[in-house]
């Protein structure tokens, strides 16, 4: 079983309108004008993994209030095994308004969700028995209010006590603290702050510094999105993973496709850091070149594999 962890999921509600104008009361009559889907980095990666043909994929985390039951059904409709702690507080709703002409994209990101100490204790107990059938666990995304910044550190520690490896996709202080537990693969996300390990990153030198620093602080491998490419780091070398001749339509969902495809490769063929990244980059390219934010199958990744180049970066 593949396990992905989502502590701060959301119900994503997308509204498609001709023109997004303030102070205008608009009516949406077309079914295609409204899309409701489960959101959260771990959930999206789980859906991608399911679409790539993995039979047993589990998403574990918190869901809240009456909307939690609805969210659970949305995820189960994707044939993903749900393993959630139900909290008293209602979970998040992210609102997206997409205007056609002029093309606009308005996003209201709801960060109101919080959980109690009792919920966290229940989650830790559930997590311990939830990971028994998984060897490599993906922990990704933000944490809800009420959860301590060292939660990922604690989860990684539990994984290591049970001889499981962790792929961590996190940011900020949660990431900084988690590094102490030496997760196998670390993928920081930093679009919102442009900072990794509290330092702003802009130039390629900054990125290389950050990648090497992540390894120094405890990560065994690091993957950093850099412009339209990725810089990947193991203890000996730094590589650039890039795509040639592509047409970018959107980057939404590309990170989750990358994470899922990396996992897909490791599950099927074992841990080969460079080849797993090559496969993951081809998957991210699929999403970048299409409007859809989810992968549909392996075939579309295979088609783009030859567009991916991996070259050693000399420093």
């Amino acid at each position: 079983m593949i396990t992905t962890v989502t502590l701060n999921p959301a119900i994503d509600r997308e509204y498609f309108v001709k023109e997004n104008k303030p102070n205008l009361h608009q009516y949406i009559y077309d079914d295609e004008g409204v899309k409701v889907s489960p959101g959260g980095k771990g959930v999206l990666s789980a859906i991608n993994l399911k679409n790539l043909g993995h039979e047993d994929v589990q998403n574990i985390g918190f869901v809240g209030g009456k909307q939690g039951l609805f969210f659970e059904r949305l995820v189960q409709d994707c044939d993903i095994t749900t393993n959630y702690i139900f909290t008293e507080n209602e979970m998040r709703n992210n609102i997206f308004i997409i205007g056609e002409s002029p093309a606009t994209y308005t996003h209201y990101n709801d960060y109101t969700y919080s959980v109690s100490d009792k919920d966290i204790n229940n989650f830790i107990k559930r997590f311990k028995r939830g990971i028994v059938d998984s060897e490599f666990i993906m922990i990704s995304g933000a944490i809800p209010g009420g959860v301590s910044f060292d939660i990922y550190k604690e989860l990684i520690s539990i994984c290591h006590e049970n001889n499981k490896e962790v792929y961590l996709h996190a940011s900020g202080e949660v990431l900084n603290l988690a590094l102490e537990e030496q997760p196998k693969v670390v993928v920081p996300y930093f679009k919102h702050t442009n900072k990794i390990l509290d330092k702003e990153v802009a130039t390629i030198e900054d990125y290389i510094w950050a990648g090497k620093k992540l390894l120094e602080e405890g990560a065994q491998y690091a993957i950093l999105p850099y412009e339209c490419n990725h810089l990947i780091f193991d203890k000996d070398e730094t590589y650039k993973v890039s795509s040639k001749d592509f047409c970018m339509v959107n980057w939404l969902g590309a990170g989750e496709a990358y994470n899922a495809a990396f996992f897909d490769y490791v599950e099927r063929k074992g841990f080969d850091f460079i080849e797993a990244n090559r496969w993951a980059a081809a998957a991210a390219l699929v999403v970048a070149e299409e409007k859809e934010i989810l992968l549909k199958n392996k075939g579309e990744i295979e088609e783009r594999l030859e567009l991916i180049e991996v070259e050693r970066v000399s420093i």
Binding site: Q76, I80, T81, T82, N83, F86, K125, R126, G130
Partner: peptide, 16 residues
């Protein structure tokens, strides 16, 4: 089937 792992352990308390 419904793929839900909502469950309790034998040593959990009745209140939970």
């Amino acid at each position: 089937m419904m793929r839900s792992l909502n469950s309790v352990c034998q040593h959990d308390e009745v209140e939970g």
